[in-house]
Amino acid sequence: MTQPLLTITGLNKWFGEYHALRDVDLSVASGERIVVCGPSGSGKSTLIRCINRIEQFEQGSIVLEGVTEKGARQTESIRRQVGMVFQHFNLFPHMSVLDNCTLAPMRSLKQPRAQAESYARELLDRVRIADQADKLPGQLSGGQQQRVAIARALCMKPRLMLFDEPTSALDPEMVQEVLDTMVGLAEDGMTMICVTHEMGFARQVADRVVFMDRGQILEVAPPAAFFDHPEHERSREFLGKLLHH
């Protein structure tokens, strides 16, 4: 077995006195697609936000292969190699779509503008919004904004992409275009960890489904096995609720 790309061991996190993540262990191989699901407040978002250190954690370790520095440099190095897509897009509202995409490559990776722009246009073309490059985010629909956010993250050439409920703030008719983009990304071999409740997406692309509840990973299984024959009592309960609504 090859060295995993990401290894999480014994992760524990508290919000004040609330024990938010409890002894989480997970390793992700290069090219693997993970879907994380679970009831709200179960720590899914917190888990993936810990991976790129947007949240600090008290105990345990999260190691990205090839990152050997310590402290602040390690954080920066991880963030450069891990892309993130947020529930609420978090595009910079005062910058054009193109500027949103080129800011980080130019400022963080010190790429010249011409190089950053041509790569950004390539990616915008790939998420099929190349013609909107000069608009402001506010002029786009939610689905388009989320696709820009995906392109923006991809501009950093990440080795791992994190998706934090990327479709739950979208109107229903826009969900599919974002999921299609994510499927395309998965088909190109990108390593992904997605927090989502889109079961169709999970069945189609996930290698493993991680079920979390109350800060703990309760079940990890291939999607077909998980959705058709959940074994943990809480997984069954959760899927039951999901299906009946």
């Binding site: 024990h19 008290e58 109350r214 299984a221 291939p222």
Partner: peptide, 17 residues
């Protein structure tokens, strides 16, 4: 593919000092 099942439910612990 193997399936992982948590053997026990973790009880919350107080935050470390």
């Amino acid at each position: 593919m193997t399936r992982f099942l948590a053997p026990t439910i973790a009880t919350p612990r107080p935050a470390p000092q």
